[in-house]
Design a protein around this nucleic acid. Structure first.
Length: 897
DNA sequence: GCGGACTGCTTACCT
DNA sequence: ACAGGTAAGCAGTCCGCG
């Protein structure tokens, strides 16, 4: 099926070569074009009356048919089918005005998009009571909102007092739920769950029920025997979303290369002024293909590509584009790395520049995204850029969000390093380079049992979002959307942010950091030195547990009931509702329980088949991402349910919990070496002491506490968030020390890693003496090499600092990496926010130079020695070593400086 | 005019 | 567009100093 359309262009290349890319479409091609047009008219394929089980992967609004449309992925055929709403669902928003009042608003009644009113009752969680609202139904989502002016959501508050001077209602006019995207509104109302399996039966979209999976879902009752019926409802709902199986994703990665005359500048995809000379693809059905544009004077190249790589030559750019467009009409999932801002955008604009018609182009170009008219486009750059994904799903394994760095870290494949400009490459060199990029992009989605694809699927299910959206947006959108879904499911009015804030916007604690809204977590002062047998205990998912146990949420904090006012959060003046459970408390609490008591265990269960275990591993990872952010969003003013007292209360209860347990540990005679937020480091505690602490915490604080790990020994300095711990198996945990930070020059990092390896081999206090000597010689060796200027190349000495902002926005100070970046810019390199700047420290003003421009003899060796000094000091003083003594500086020399 | 004490800015990290 | 807390280095400012 894929081949049929592709093979048309797989003919051997014609030998006549036209270098000019803008050649007109030859008249002979018109017949073919017409044939294609006809094919396009029945395309994309509408779902048949009956469609076998298929995955709900995306939803959008079809402006022509004025209907919601769902993209269904049928994994057997590997095709996408479109299912159009057949229920007559329409866009709407809600208002407190009555139909009678609304009818007086002229601009509303004459609005072309206005359809009709419906009066209905909703539960208002802020007021804790039911209220009558009017649904204003429209024929087009743009009539409600989404345009700068003249939309229904703006008209009502603008015109109501004017058109109704009699003030029939004393309240001000309010509009709710007018900013929800239409397709999301549709998903919530229909209770369609994206990522789940559906069938089309007699034209209707019906969820597929898998008996086997439902049996597991039913088990929740026995796994959580203490859960209330209400809690069980949430546990079951989540479990169903997380237990249903994932499909194989038929997909292809794509990468394009553009011929640009100035090699330091990335060509502007909006102009698309230069020809596309190479396109590669790497597919899940194991096809590797490179399509090249024939150009004058370009050689074939001597080396050859692997036998399974298909090379195709095109004599015009149009033919090349048409060939890649066939692929975009064909594959259900298209994977790119930065396709939103480059590859797909360039392809679309280039095609328009070459005179192709819009309906021939399978790309929908948006302001910030590029979507596909047929399949689902996943831009991995956006996905891997997501901080939560970077930190929690990939444990900070990649530092720099580039294809090279991510590829290297996740799958161990690097980009091909080019020594020549694109224009000077042979066809095979270009093909190899381009194919490597597609290969990395594809493998990023296939690594670890298709982790990335499945993660996106699970997150789509949790958040009720299309796969395209969930892969591009941040964790606060994911959380917001499942909150919205649950509001709609329970007939709750979704409050406006300004109303939450007006009632519950004040915080009562003072932050330690200037400019922050409230006080955060406690860090226990560490006890400096080397300590053997250190037990690390922690509260698993502390903040989500607090949200569950203390019933926190925007509706429960500072609730309107007088009898709840005595239920005070320790350390604050806030009270919490005792009458009704908050939605957040139930949703986040049940997710936490599922992760800790089901998915984490299943992920490690060797009795399960490997495939299933891997799915559980991915699922628990997705839950971790959500849970880790579930407290922070309440303190983020960008979050739709922003409620600072909820965040403040959560942190306050966290402080209360750790302070209580600290006191209990002291009573039990346990020495606490350190602690941070939700953890305690105990020096050589007895089994009984630990058991008592666990029992007491569960009884008194109603929270679980775990023995997370035991360090054979741990090294603390007096610095908080800075330590090193060695596990029984020799693994070394390094936290916060300079030697592990990504900006540190490799020359110093390397010495630090040598020390780490040496420390891993220390088993008992006696071993330390020999280790100390070895560590001293590691330091001494680095010191003398610096003094003698013995380093391999300048890269070893480079600091690597991310440019947080565009250069001209540094107005207050000019940090070193900014100075270096400015020098680079002057040498003609394009510099943007987010770039990693590599520089070395030099003797002469301004004491920095980009590593590319620096030479050996201008390096400020003493600065590097000072850096080596401070990096090692963090560990040395705990070991009873002194940097100065190691390098043999006498006291007098030190005194003289 | 210069250096030390200080504050603020910036980045990277921890939980 | 998740939060606050901590470390570190450097830039910039203020003040004293005949």
């Amino acid at each position: 099926m894929a081949q049929q359309s592709l093979d048309f262009y797989s003919q051997p290349p014609k030998k006549t070569i036209k270098a000019e890319a803008k050649a007109e479409t030859p008249p002979t091609a018109l017949g073919e074009q017409e044939k294609k047009e006809r094919k396009r008219r029945v395309f994309p394929p509408e779902a048949p009356e009956n469609l076998p089980p298929s995955y709900f992967v995306s939803a959008s609004y079809d402006g022509h048919q004025r209907k919601a449309v769902v993209k269904l992925y049928e994994p057997e055929s590997g095709n996408i089918y479109f299912w159009y709403d057949n229920t007559g669902h329409k866009p709407y928003c809600l208002t407190n005005l009555s139909e009678r009042e609304l009818k007086k608003i002229e601009r509303l009644m004459t609005h072309p998009g206005f359809d009709h009113f419906e009066t209905t009752v909703k539960f208002n969680p802020l007021l804790d009571r039911k209220m009558q609202v009017t649904k204003i139904v429209a024929s087009d989502p743009l009539a409600i909102g989404g345009k700068p002016q003249g939309t229904i959501r703006d008209i009502i508050p603008e015109d109501f007092p004017k058109t109704s001077p009699s003030m029939a209602s004393a309240e001000e006019a309010k509009v709710w739920e007018a900013r929800i995207k239409y397709y999301q509104c549709y998903i919530y109302d229909k209770q369609f769950l994206p990522g789940m399996i559906f069938e089309v039966k007699n034209g209707n979209l019906i969820p597929t029920i898998l008996e086997q999976t439902e049996k597991i879902v039913e088990q929740m009752k026995t796994i959580f025997p203490e859960a209330t019926p209400q809690e069980l409802e949430y546990l079951t709902e989540w479990a169903r979303l997380l237990e249903y199986p994932a499909p194989k994703f038929r997909r292809t990665a794509i990468d394009i290369e553009v011929y640009a005359p100035i090699s330091t500048r990335v060509p502007d995809p909006r102009e698309a002024a230069y020809p596309i000379i190479c396109i590669s693809m790497y597919t899940s059905d194991n096809q590797k293909k490179v399509m090249l544009l024939k150009r004058e004077g370009v050689r074939e190249g001597n080396e050859h590509l692997p036998a399974d790589v298909k090379l195709e030559y095109y004599d015009t750019e149009e033919k090349l584009l048409k060939a890649v467009f066939e692929v975009l009409w064909e594959y259900p999932f298209i994977i790119t790395f930065n396709g939103d801002d480059f590859d797909l955008r360039y392809l679309a604009h280039r095609a328009l520049n070459l005179g192709m018609r819009r309906n021939e182009i399978p790309i929908e170009v948006g302001r910030r995204v590029c979507l596909l008219r047929y399949g689902v486009h996943i831009d991995l750059y956006k996905f891997f850029f997501n901080r939560s994904i970077q930190i929690y799903a990939f444990s900070n394994r990649y530092r720099d969000v580039t294809l090279d760095d991510v590829g290297n870290a996740i799958i161990g494949v690097e980009k091909i390093k080019l020594e020549k400009a694109f224009g000077d490459l042979t066809y095979t060199e270009l093909a190899k380079y381009c194919l490597r990029d597609s290969e990395i992009t594809f493998k990023l989605t296939s690594a670890e049992d298709e982790l990335a694809m499945k993660l996106i699927l699970v997150l789509a299910r949790i958040s009720s979002m299309p796969m395209e959206d969930v892969s591009r947006q941040g964790v606060s959108r994911w959380i917001r959307n499942f909150m919205h879904r649950e509001h709609r499911k329970r007939n709750m009015l979704i409050p406006n942010p300004e109303d939450i804030l007006a009632q519950k916007g004040k915080t009562t604690t003072t932050a330690i950091i200037k400019g922050k809204k409230y006080k955060g977590a406690i860090v226990v002062e560490p006890t400096p030195g080397v300590h053997f047998n250190v037990a690390v205990m922690d509260f698993p998912s502390l903040y989500p547990s607090i949200i569950k146990v203390w019933n926190l949420g925007y509706q429960s904090i500072l609730c309107p009931h007088p009898e709840c006012r005595s239920n005070i959060v320790p350390g604050t003046t806030h009270w919490v509702c005792t009458r009704e459970r908050a939605l957040e408390s139930l949703l986040i609490g049940s997710l936490r329980d599922l992760r800790v008591r089901w998915y984490k265990l299943k992920a490690k269960d060797k009795a399960l088949p490997a495939e299933l275990r891997s799915w559980y591993k991915i699922t628990q990872g997705a839950l971790k991402v959500i849970l880790n952010a579930s407290y922070g969003v309440f303190g983020a003013d960008s979050f739709d349910l922003y409620c600072p007292p909820v965040a403040e209360a959560t942190a306050a209860i966290g402080r209360h919990s750790i302070t209580q347990i600290l006191g209990r540990a002291e009573q039990l005679g346990i020495q606490v070496l350190y602690g941070d937020t939700d953890s305690l480091f105990l020096k050589n505690p007895s089994k009984e002491q630990v058991e008592e602490l666990v029992r007491w915490t569960e009884h008194e604080l109603k929270m679980s506490i775990d023995m997370e790990k035991i360090y054979r020994y741990a090294v603390f300095s007096s610095r908080k968030k800075n330590y090193l711990g060695v596990l029984e198996d020799g693994t070394v945990d390094v936290k916060g020390l300079t030697g592990k930070k990504k900006h540190v020059p490799f020359f110093i990092k390397n010495a630090f890693n040598q020390m780490k390896e040496r420390l891993a081999r220390v088993k008992n206090p006696a071993d330390f003496e020999a280790a100390k000597k070895d560590i001293a010689s590691i330091v001494r060796e680095r010191y003398t090499r610096l003094k003698r200027r013995e380093w391999q190349n300048m890269d070893e000495l480079a600091f690597h600092v991310v440019l947080g902002d565009d250069l001209h926005r540094y107005t207050k100070t000019t940090p070193q990496h900014v100075k270096a970046a400015k020098m680079l810019e002057e040498s003609g390199v394009e510099i943007r926010a987010g770039d990693l700047i590599s520089f070395v420290k030099t003797v002469r003003e301004p004491h920095v130079k980009p590593v590319e421009l620096a030479t050996k003899n201008e390096v400020d060796v003493d600065k590097y020695i000072a850096y080596l000094h401070s990096t090692f000091d963090q560990v040395l003083d705990a070991l009873g070593l002194s940097f100065d003594e190691i390098i043999g500086l006498t006291k007098l020399e030190r005194f003289l400086g």
